[in-house]
Amino acid sequence: MSRVVVMDLRRHNTVLVGHHRYFVFEPDGRPLLVRDWCPHRGGPLSLSRQTPDGRRLVCPWHGTKVGTAAVKRTSVPMVRSGDEAVVMLPDVDADTPITVIHKRILANLPPEAEQAKTVPCPPAAAGVHE
């Protein structure tokens, strides 16, 4: 039996289902709810970055490149209507905890937007008073 989860896409982008995570992936500007799980070692694909050609995601754990098409194929049934998404999670027990949350997702950032590594804020600029 499917479990139904309603998401407000303005507020939520991640669904925790027991030990599994799903995240809202927007490869073509349209949201899909896909497994946050790299096929190599289960790394967090939501925190991966796109390759420059935008066709693959680079997993942050071991640098494994996963084709966007393969990620899309892991999407679970979902009906989006405006900002509301109704997700039907297949084969989830009634007592499996489900939580809908907002997390940082890097996989949707455009590849050219690779930011410089976070530079620690120098204390002088951080309101040190004497």
């Binding site: 790394g43 967090p44 925190l47 942050p60 754990w61 940082r104 890097l106 590594k117 976070t118």
Partner: peptide
Amino acid sequence: GYGVHDTKHTTI
């Protein structure tokens, strides 16, 4: 943060 420094709790 799954080993991704930008998402480590201390970073956020």
